[in-house]
């Protein structure tokens, strides 16, 4: 009970592990490329929670700065990935990742 009511590092790590599991599940099981991207965003958020949790309980700023850079990289990744998905949709008329099996039209 003491461990449940006192919020510590393990609580954040638990949430992070659950988000990582859900993200991997989405990446693995969904056929729609957009939902796969949402899974990737969940995984990046899980990593960020870990960085910030360890940074808080360590007292350093390294985790905070790294989390900031992760957010920037995630924005760049989402823009590029959406552009690629839109191109795939133009060529194949579908965003089903299991049916895209050639690299040219």
């Amino acid at each position: 009970m003491e461990q449940l009511t006192t919020i510590g590092l393990n609580h954040y790590l638990t949430i992070s592990a659950i988000l990582l599991g859900f993200g991997l599940f989405a990446v693995m099981t969904r056929k729609n490329a957009i939902v796969v991207l949402m899974g990737v965003e969940l995984i990046l958020n899980a990593a960020n929670i870990n960085f910030l949790a360890f940074s808080k309980y360590n007292g350093g700023m390294e985790g905070v700065m790294f989390a900031l850079f992760v957010i920037v990289i995630a924005a760049a990744e989402a823009a590029i990935a959406l552009a690629i998905v839109i191109n795939i949709f133009k060529i194949f008329k579908s965003v089903d990742v299991s049916s895209i099996d050639s690299m040219k039209e």
Binding site: N10, L13, T14, A17, I18, L20, G21, F22, L24, F25, M28, T29, R30, K31, N32, V35, D96, S98
Partner: peptide, 24 residues
């Protein structure tokens, strides 16, 4: 949206969460 690989996906989900929480 269609779903495939549902069994390996569930095993991976349970495995990852279980293993990480067990370690923590």
């Amino acid at each position: 949206s269609e779903v495939f690989h549902i069994i390996p996906g569930t095993v991976l989900l349970a495995g990852i969460i279980g293993a990480l929480l067990y370690t923590f």
